[in-house]
Design a protein around this nucleic acid. Sequence first.
DNA 1: TATTATACTGTATATATATTCAGTATTTTA
DNA 2: TAAAATACTGAATATATATACAGTATAATA
Lengths: 204, 204
Amino acid sequence: MKKITPQQQRVLDCIQVYIKKTGFPPTRADICRELGFKSPNSAETHLRALEKKDYITIESGTSRGISIKNKAVIDNGNEYPVIGLVAAGSPTLAEENIERTINCPKSFFDSNFDYFLKVKGLSMKDAGIMEDDLIAVKKTSEIKNGDIVIARLEDEVTVKFFKRKSSKIVELEPANEDFQNIVVNLEQDKLHIEGKSVGLLRKN
Amino acid sequence: MKKITPQQQRVLDCIQVYIKKTGFPPTRADICRELGFKSPNSAETHLRALEKKDYITIESGTSRGISIKNKAVIDNGNEYPVIGLVAAGSPTLAEENIERTINCPKSFFDSNFDYFLKVKGLSMKDAGIMEDDLIAVKKTSEIKNGDIVIARLEDEVTVKFFKRKSSKIVELEPANEDFQNIVVNLEQDKLHIEGKSVGLLRKN
DNA sequence: TATTATACTGTATATATATTCAGTATTTTA
DNA sequence: TAAAATACTGAATATATATACAGTATAATA
């Protein structure tokens, strides 16, 4: 994180306070009023400097299009991201994968968790996991036999029961007789366990 | 707090999501784009309705000058009771029936709800409702065919699909082939609908 | 039954706002 | 020591945006 000047800090603080107070970001003119500048270009150049140093983003051509970058937003509060289980692609916490967030107490499930995963398909239906259910996922590699895991095989992400058969063989077991067990040879196949289910949420 | 229409709720949600995503409120045109309106006045009138009902404030003459009133947002953090579904006995909110409470935002499920009901048995397993799951119950008598209802027949409380067959006959349909439909003749039997399921919560 | 609220389309416009250009001056960096 | 960054004023402008006005249609309410 690049250093910012005291004056740039004042502008950044001003933006933060303004949003806190009004609910929306300031215009260039608003910043001038708050900090006593006489030209909107004073605000403009400070904003561009803050953008260059990666403290804010400015949406071009958009009124009040300032937003403060806040890398800690997802981790700190009680906002948990909902991530779509796309057929190919990992459920990372990259912003583009976040459908929305859900506000929920940290201690909501018996164990801490990191995000909600939206389920596609019915491969776990006999375990009571239906399409569009939200699984509370805890990122962990401490997996016990019988745990419901979120596993990535190559680029495919699935939710299955975890069954270790031997030191080399793991089976990913669905809860639906229409689906087959997935046998994974750890020496050949690239298996990554994203985490395990610690709870479930359904809206209907 | 005055009631808002489903469409107004959509607009309110849209604003909330937009702010979450971008860091600043939407314009009228943004709302139109998100919700498929073709005239900015569609957004305008909805906004005015939401303002009148005190869900938002609109800063006059100010671009993106929408802010969501705290009441609508911070009015979460409620304690919801968890009630055991005992074979005989009604899931009333009497203190002796409350196992514990769960803290959860008001808008957690798509509809408001009143309490959690802890499920016994597997009569709804094909609907993804398993033993010890917690159903979010909304106390209401507005039941549509196919809704999952919490019904009391004499002193027995069950969770089933609701199917109205005629003006006199209602069927309570399980989601498990090991169980039988319950046919209720409204003229003979005392059927009371406690409410319907608006969501589900599982901890494992 | 009349009235109000809801739910839109469509057009028009004053103005709020971002943004560029032209300067001046000081400080920091290479 | 030259170049770049900082820190402003001041004016101009294209456009993003709120907002009013004129309609149409349906649902809810009194």
